[in-house]
Amino acid sequence: MATIQIAGKNIEVDEDGYLVNLEDWSEEVANSLAASEQVEMSPNHWEVVNFLREYYQEYKIAPMIRILTKEIGKKLGKDKGNTKYLYELYPGGPAKQACKIAGLPKPTGCV
């Protein structure tokens, strides 16, 4: 397993750079992961990350994209509640890139 150093702390990540231990996550870690993905975190980016983390805490899985878009639509306005906007925020994909920054494991399967 590889490790990355964030704020003087060694953090284990998998081959794709996803956190191995979810409890290693912090806002600082998120910012650092975002930087490595060339994503600059705005408040709207944080809305996505925060929702992903909340949902994960309850269900132990990332939400369906449709659930995420609807939630973002509720929070940020209907015009933003769609996949296209999520890809604007996270060009690497809301499922994969956003999950990575939120400290969630990488979704597996035909996704």
């Binding site: 269900y59 132990k60 899985i61 369906m64 449709r66 659930i67 979704p107 597996t108 399967g109």
Partner: peptide, 19 residues
Amino acid sequence: NLGIPKNALIGTLEFLEED
């Protein structure tokens, strides 16, 4: 394949019914 637990599956299907 995704590792969706049962309660999450229930939540997802309920969401779809509402949607």
